[in-house]
């Protein structure tokens, strides 16, 4: 009787030892598993960071000259669209990727207004410094294609991430350092609708800014 009990205890001990190293199942917190699955599917933060560093920052020289774009929009909006802009799918809006250097003429809650001319104080460009929404940054550069994303939710999540990156990396510097008279070199994206083709100042969401003292 004693011998049987001893054998049973030894057998149980051996089994416990085996299962310690080769468990039949694992307990994983649900949130951790959901997070793993989501990460395996698509991670907008990682994608946006890689896009920003590997593509966007290396393509800044592709941006059109802001002065030329503004002049073209004022004289012939249709020509400006075809020459410098791009329209996504079926839309009455045109997106521009543009660059320039301007002098700050005013700083308001809406953003930093710049003139591109030496002899004028009329604002040509507005660099917004508040909350950013929409797809202007994602679509403005022409570097991302909706057709590459099977699920449009992922493509749209990218907009939120890119806007957040601009808000975190560029806008604080603009809010703190942009003063009237300061020169700013910028590269950014703008969206122009049919109705406001020649509206001034043109709102440009920056993807790069460099500030110089007056």
């Amino acid at each position: 009787m004693m011998k049987r009990a001893l054998l049973a205890v030894v057998a149980l001990g051996l089994l416990a030892g085996v299962f310690r190293f080769v468990p039949l199942f694992h307990l994983v917190p649900l949130k951790q598993e959901q997070g793993r699955q989501a990460a395996a599917e698509f991670n907008p933060t990682n994608f946006a960071t890689a896009f920003w560093n590997d593509k966007l920052l290396k393509s800044l020289d592709r941006a059109a000259d802001a002065g030329q774009v503004l002049a073209a929009l004022a004289s012939d909006p249709q020509k400006a669209r075809t020459q410098f802009g791009r329209t996504l799918g079926i839309s009455s809006s045109t997106l521009f990727f543009l660059r320039g250097t301007g002098r700050v003429v005013s700083v308001t809650k809406k953003g930093v207004a710049l003139t591109l001319k030496d002899d004028s104080d009329t604002a040509d460009i507005l660099l917004p410094t508040g909350l950013l929404f929409g797809n202007t940054v994602r679509d403005g550069t022409g570097l991302l294609d909706a057709s590459a994303f099977p699920n449009s939710q992922h493509f749209n999540d990218l907009s939120t991430e890119l806007n957040r990156m601009v808000e975190i990396t560029l806008l604080p510097k603009l809010r703190e350092q942009a003063k009237v008279g300061v020169k700013i070199s910028f590269v950014g994206c703008a969206e122009v609708t049919e109705e406001d083709a020649d509206a001034r100042p043109l709102k440009v969401i920056p993807v790069s800014v460099k500030l110089e003292s007056p």
Partner: peptide, 8 residues
């Protein structure tokens, strides 16, 4: 044909 054509 483009795979996805967004309509504003």
């Amino acid at each position: 044909f483009p795979q996805k054509i967004p309509v504003a």
